[in-house]
Design a protein around this nucleic acid. Structure first.
Length: 400
RNA sequence: GGCCCCGUGGUGUAUCGGUUAGCACGCCAGGUUUUCAACCUGGAAGGGCGGGUUCAACUCCCGCCGGGGCUACCA
């Protein structure tokens, strides 16, 4: 069995001898003819015969012009499609279409038909946009006396604007999706569910399951809109179940780094928080770089209670023997109550001090992975900055 | 314009003559919570329209409307 992947490299391969031979046969049998008509001539012909009538040319006496296939005036060409059933195209409205240019170079609808025949293609699965091209290919095959392959036209993917998905919709190719941080198995799962359902309410299906359950006749007929929100969600599900080493390697590859222990530790504490792979690095870059400069986060978090909270945290961390997540938690956890502050009032300043941001992995984990030395240094830096620029009171002083 | 395909909530789908029209994403509200995310609970939201056929239609037929594809001496 052969599969025509459509527009793949094989259809680009020059098969000149086969094409030339097929052309020759068709010309000799009268199934095709040379026609010197120009595009304008064809238009004029249509104006005269009606738009619904397919163009019919006349053989050029000098044997010049493009080569057209002779299409019957009556009857229909029916495409027996595995997904859409039998679709009939009236021959009368089909043009005697050009199969080769004046110089003998062949055109797509002729080339694929000949190539499919040559290569013994038995199944053609491709996008719905080729459904209307199929009768042309069938006509070529018929003229050649070749048994046609079986066809299946799958629905097209549309962008949010309802048009067929293309470059201008952004991430439209699998490569772009990969670069954007989507996992192959998530994309596979998501795309499979557009236009095909397993029959029950299952949403998360791994590739083996899909292969086992897939049946061409279960494919839907209507085009689907590509919804990146759902892909994001699904990708997040796959990311959370991913093996940490593989996860680390992927993050490393995407950010041009080495999958070392520190990166692995960072991935370990960020794995539950990201939905696409490119979101991981922003969450853990503080482990490798200085805290980000986020003035808004600073002002929002560093209120008047911040210096005391940071000092208490600093002292507690400095007194620790070990520096595991459990150690850090045991040191930090009692502080809010002892200071009569909400937990967030204590933890957020620490978060901003070590990462610069309001968003990061869990605070105990972040501190533990950053390490004692760097954590203390960053808290000190924050304390110094706070001393130089005293924060506003958390509760504005009431006038009078 | 012509030929062809498609039409269940915002999105993807299930059901395919009789259902309280199911599920998922998203959205809204609440819960949990050290941020964000995750997670839990609840909620709003659907058969394009008009005719038939039928005891009964989202499901069948016709028309319309809407969307899409093709319509090159492109692939």
């Amino acid at each position: 069995m052969g599969i025509d992947w459509d527009e793949g490299p094989l259809s680009q391969v020059a098969r000149a001898p086969e094409h030339a031979a097929a052309l020759e046969r068709l010309l000799e049998s009268g199934a095709a003819y040379r026609d010197a008509a120009t595009a304008e001539d064809v238009r004029a012909w249509k104006d005269e015969h009606g738009a619904g009538r397919g163009y019919r040319g006349t053989p050029d006496p000098d044997g010049c012009g493009a080569i057209r296939l002779r299409v019957p005036d009556d009857g229909v060409t029916v495409v027996k499609d595995m997904i859409r059933g039998e679709v009939s195209f009236p021959n009368a409205s089909q043009d005697d279409f050009v199969i080769a240019r004046g110089d003998g170079s062949v055109l797509y609808n002729f080339a694929v038909a000949v190539d499919d025949a040559d290569m013994g293609i038995t199944e053609v699965i491709r996008g719905d946009d080729h459904l209307s091209n199929t009768p042309k290919q069938l006509l070529v095959l018929e003229a050649l006396g070749v048994e046609p392959p079986r066809y299946a036209h799958v629905p097209l993917l549309h962008g949010p604007d309802g048009k067929k998905l293309s470059k201008r919709h952004g991430a439209a190719s699998v490569q772009e999706l990969r670069d954007a941080g989507y996992l192959p198995e998530a994309v596979r799962n998501y795309v499979a569910l557009l236009g095909w359902g397993p029959g029950d309410d299952e949403t998360l299906l791994d590739t083996a399951e899909m292969v086992a359950r897939f049946r061409p006749e279960d494919v839907g007929r209507s085009s689907a809109v590509f919804d990146e929100k759902k892909l994001r969600w699904m990708n997040g599900r796959y990311m959370r179940e991913m093996d940490l080493d593989e996860y680390t390697r992927t993050v490393a590859r995407l950010n041009g780094r080495e999958p070392d222990d520190r990166l692995r530790a960072g991935c370990g504490i960020a794995q539950e928080k990201a939905q696409i792979m490119t979101e991981v690095w922003p969450l853990i870059r503080f482990l490798f770089e200085e805290p980000v400069d986020d003035e808004k986060a600073w002002r929002k978090t560093m209120k008047s209670h911040a210096p005391e909270a940071l000092t208490a945290a600093r002292d507690a961390l400095a007194a620790l023997d070990g520096f595991s997540v459990a150690d850090v938690e045991s040191a930090l956890e009692p502080i809010p109550a002892s200071m009569e502050l909400g937990a967030g009032k204590v933890y957020q300043p620490i978060r901003v001090a070590i990462t610069g941001s309001n968003v990061s992995p869990g605070i105990f984990e972040s501190v533990a992975v950053l390490g004692r030395e760097e954590t203390l240094a960053r808290i000190d830096t924050a304390l110094t900055r706070l001393a130089a620029n005293p924060p506003e009171p958390a509760v504005p002083a009431t006038p009078e």
